[in-house]
Write a protein that binds this DNA or RNA. Structure first.
Lengths: 212, 212
DNA sequence: AGAATAGTGTCTCTCAGACATTATTTG
DNA sequence: CAAATAATGTCTGAGAGACACTATTCT
């Protein structure tokens, strides 16, 4: 008989329609909320987090990381709920994510949010931007094979600033964390070389910010 | 009637006797443990963390930050305890910290530790080293006024490597995050200029690693 | 041929890192 | 004056950032 409840929330980011978006679930007629799940006595926090957005095609390609645990009494009126919040990235080519009533929302046009969820999302975004600068997290939002232009657009969208094309390519390629595949992608203009991420090369990422 | 319990643990670091040390409490005759406290329904996680090492002289000079929440079923045999772990730094001149049976232990000579506490401490140390590179956290371990040699020794002790004196001074001073005080400290040789930390200048710290 | 996107190289400037000697105080 | 610690400046190399044109494909 403990009047304290433990839940897990997940901030799920993806790039959709050239914008960074979060997956939300309706809280009531006015507001939306982060996907949530009670932590069962026999399941790990990470398992709970994955269960919070279970219906997805969920291959290894989902990046999941613990973000922060929110537990102030009063963060949810009338109840004492401690929430371990996780942070997830879904590649832009994964479909069928809007299971049930969940829907994607652009970060620059967020709806009204329940409790402290706006604050949580703001923090998750800061963390995503920050991680982008010193880790290889950007690739978790891309398909297995991607062009350098797509990679650059991903960085630009998340950081909210334009990057120089030549410098971007030089640094990414010199870092050795991607490699060309035998494929090319045809589109409007000249077809582009496709690259793939080399997870084995990530160990080399230093605290020094290797890529843009 | 929830069979899941929520506690807070604190990894408390300080520099004592020229070594980085952790404050531990005896778990049984063989092993030691991180200070721990159950989270009460009406108190915040941070309040619980502070209460976990309450008897200290506790002015504003204690740095406290949430580290990670450990919650795997099975991390503590026979019970399901979820622990929000905090990370604290105590300046080296604060005395009277060994209240009760708590004692400082050098990180290079840790005793046997309960449950997953060795893993937790290892993670906290990684985080401390990492933060030292891009934030001003090093000052939280020093007295209000300190010499440049003391500051450098702090960095060297935590990072576990020697740093170049001239480069260290140049970078710290150019960063503008410390200022000379009117005082000097006499010792064995030539007296040293005392400096003080300028918390207002910390906002300028970028992701780019300003100091050594 | 024109539209669209991919792909490429150089220069400059800043900053990190290596390095040794002089200055001030105490006993 | 000897011992101890504090304080100081220069050079070099690597890498970040600014910058504009050519190449390939499709219609």
């Amino acid at each position: 008989m403990n009047s304290l409840r433990l839940t897990v929330n997940v901030v799920i980011f993806s790039l959709r329609e050239d914008a960074l978006q979060v997956l939300l679930t309706p809280a009531n007629t006015q507001t939306w909320a982060l996907p949530e799940k009670s932590v069962e006595p026999d399941e790990s926090l990470e398992q709970s987090a994955l269960a919070a957005f279970s219906r997805l095609p969920r291959p290894p390609e989902i990046y999941l990381e613990q973000l922060y645990t929110y537990g102030d009494p009063g963060r949810i009126p009338g109840q004492r709920i401690v929430s371990a919040v996780y942070f997830a990235l879904i590649p832009m080519d994964v479909r069928g994510t809007e299971s049930g009533a969940m829907a994607w929302h652009r970060l620059d046009r967020l709806p009204g949010l329940a409790h402290d969820h706006a604050e949580i999302i703001a923090y998750a975004l800061r963390r995503l931007r920050y991680k982008l600068e010193y880790s290889a997290v950007g690739f978790e939002l891309l398909p297995d094979e991607f062009t350098l232009s797509e990679l650059q657009q991903t960085y630009e969208t998340i950081l909210g600033e334009k990057l120089d094309k030549r410098n971007f390519r030089r640094r990414i390629l010199e870092a050795g964390i991607i490699e060309a595949t035998p494929h090319r992608r045809s589109g409007d203009g000249r077809p582009a070389q496709l690259y793939r991420y080399r997870p084995d090369a990530v160990a080399e990422v230093k605290a020094r910010r290797l890529f843009p």
